[in-house]
Structures are given as C-alpha cells and as structure tokens.
Amino acid sequence: MQDYFGYELIYVPPTGSSIYTKPFSYISQWIKTLEHIKRSDPDVVWIQTPPTFLPHILLSYRFYSRRKFRIVFDCHNSTFYEPWVRIPGLSWALRRGDAVLVHNSEIARTTRHIGLGDERLVLLETRPAQVNLLESANHSSREVLVPCSFKSDEPVEAIIDAAKLSPDITYILTGNYRRYSQAWRFEEGLPPNLKLTSYISTAEFNRLLSTCSVVLGLTTREGVQLSVANEAVGAGKPMVLSDTKILRDLFGEAALFCNNTGVSIAQALQEALSARSLLANRSVQLRSVREVRWTAQANALKLSLDVLDRKSKEC
C-alpha cells in the first residue's frame, strides 16, 4: 500500500509492554504521533487501528488545531472484535473520517453491526505479498512452514498432535512461542519433526517460504484472513488453511481446507504434498486474479481521495 499510494510510513514503537507501563506507553505514542503530524503538515493522514481510541485523538486534534487534513482509518480486523470494539464512540469516530478501510467482505458486514454505513466504507482486500523467491523447494522435501503469532485463535495443540501423527513431515513453526499460554509444552516432549525458529529476520522468513513445500495457516476465528495465506499466494505456494467461510471465499481452489484437529491437519497436509504441483499452479493463478482485483479497488480509493482533495481546494 505504501508503494502504491505514496505515503510516508511512520512507526511509533511502544515504550513498554507490561500492563503497568502500557498506559504511559500509549500516551508517549500519542504525543509523538501528533508531533509528527504537526511538523509534516500533511494533506492526508492514514492511521491504522487498533488501538481504536486513536481515531478519537486524531479527530480532536484536527478540530482544535483547525487543520484541514483528511483522515483514512485503515482498520485491522481486530478493530471490530473485543476488546477494541468496546471503546466508547468508535462508530461515531469512524463515521467522521474521510475513508474507512476494511480488508474482507466478512469484516465489511461486521461494521454494519456498530452502525457504520456504506458512505465512507472502502473494501480493499489485502494484496498478495510481493515476494522475491531466491531459492526453490526440493521436490522431495516434505517441509511445512507454519507462521505463528501464538495468539488465542491459533490451535497450537492441534499442530502438535498433527506432527505426532505425521512423523514423515517436518513442521517449521516461526514466532515467539514464549507468548503461548502453554509455553511449557515447548520445553520438552515435542515430537522431533516439529522445529521452532522463534523470531527470525525477514530474509530468513523469505528463505523458509521459498524452500518449503506447503504453507499451513490456522485460525479458530471467522473473519481472520491470515497474512500467511497472502504470503503463500505471493510466493505461489500450496496452502492448507482452516475451513472458515472467509478463507474459502478468498482462497478457494488454491488451498486445501481442514478442521482444527490433529487428524484433519495431518490428512490435509499429506494430500497437499501429493498434489503440490497442482496447488502451486492454482496459487500462481490466484495471485494474478487478486492483483487485478486489488488494483481496481486501490484505484477507486485513490480516485475518491483525489476528488476530496479537489473539493477541499475549491473551498
């Protein structure tokens, strides 16, 4: 999105992660964000949510500073789930932005439950990852890449069970497993075919993505579109995904789908490994279709922002 729309990307990191320091970290981030907006004096400000109180702060600053910059709220799916959806005035704040971006049709339907109409809502699906593959997978390889955040919607126990049921497959789990509520399970007793990488660099992740045979993406929550699935499509890789409505809508015949149980996961992976060439071709085809669709959606958003810009200059 940054390359296409040409905005300057600013990341304001937290200053603390514990429950006691987080409120002070948020305040520090608010101040730094507003200071940057004041210095740069932009025509358009893109803000990613959550946190869902950031729209309130930005709208208040625009009102009291008398600046006329437009606001685009780029809403991550979790904006519309607890706890963030419970922030008072969320719907009020979003309705006062110039555009509200959501990234799949399921979330677009969810926004109506909080009273957000269609006049500012923009569906901009996640673009397939722009991946440069420097290596290729060995045709005899049976490595499965499993990118994890170890959050509550990921059925980690089922992945462990699947690894035990399929000792001929190597499971490579990325991410910080110490965040997992059952982290003690990773210290001992894991099957030898389940490998943990912890945090890795982007270059190392892309190498694993290049050389793996199948990408496995799992969630227990509807409406989650899985970044890993877009990365797999961008890399033209076979996929096994959780059987949810939104994932079927987005990835269709380019993936095999499973229930979040060890037996179902192991069985789907065996099938994907057997059909890896066919699934890889379908993933490449889907990448082309999704690129065309994303470009059309992005063009429509760009046009609407240009129209708003002309109107503001006329005023």
Rank of each mutant, 00 (worst) to 15 (best):
I10P: 01
G97W: 01
W92N: 04
Y199S: 13
G117F: 00
P42C: 01
Q225S: 14
V240L: 04
R66A: 12
I172R: 12
L101D: 00
S210E: 07
P42T: 00
G236P: 07
W30F: 15
I31H: 07
L305E: 03
D309S: 15
Q270L: 11
S25Q: 01
L54A: 11
T21F: 03
S140F: 11
S25H: 02
S198E: 15
F53D: 11
V224P: 02
P147K: 05
G262H: 10
E82P: 12
E106F: 15
K311I: 15
V214F: 09
R221V: 10
N260Y: 10
E119L: 08
K32G: 03
T261A: 09
Q267F: 11
A93I: 04
S274V: 14
H103E: 11
K313H: 13
P14M: 02
A203F: 09
H36L: 15
E314G: 04
G189Q: 01
L190I: 05
N281V: 07
L269H: 09
P128N: 09
L247W: 07
V102Y: 03
V224T: 10
V228W: 00
Y171R: 04
C315S: 13
C212A: 14
A300P: 01
L123M: 12
V263L: 14
R39W: 03
V233S: 05
T52E: 04
K313P: 00
P50G: 02
K313C: 04
R282N: 14
S227Y: 12
S149C: 05
A99F: 02
F24R: 10
A280N: 10
L209H: 09
D3Y: 09
R112Q: 13
R142Y: 05
D309C: 00
T21E: 14
S78W: 05
Y64I: 15
L256G: 08
I10H: 14
S166L: 12
G223K: 02
R86G: 05
V284T: 12
L94R: 00
A229P: 03
A235T: 03
K195V: 15
D249M: 12
D243R: 13
L59S: 07
R221C: 01
S312V: 07
L190A: 04
L116I: 14
L190Y: 05
P191M: 06
P42A: 01
G6D: 12
T170Y: 03
I71A: 00
R293W: 00
D98K: 01
E35K: 06
D249V: 11
D43G: 14
L286E: 08
K195R: 14
T211D: 04
A162H: 10
K164D: 01
K68L: 07
L165G: 06
L247C: 07
E231F: 08
E204H: 14
S136L: 08
Y61T: 04
V215S: 08
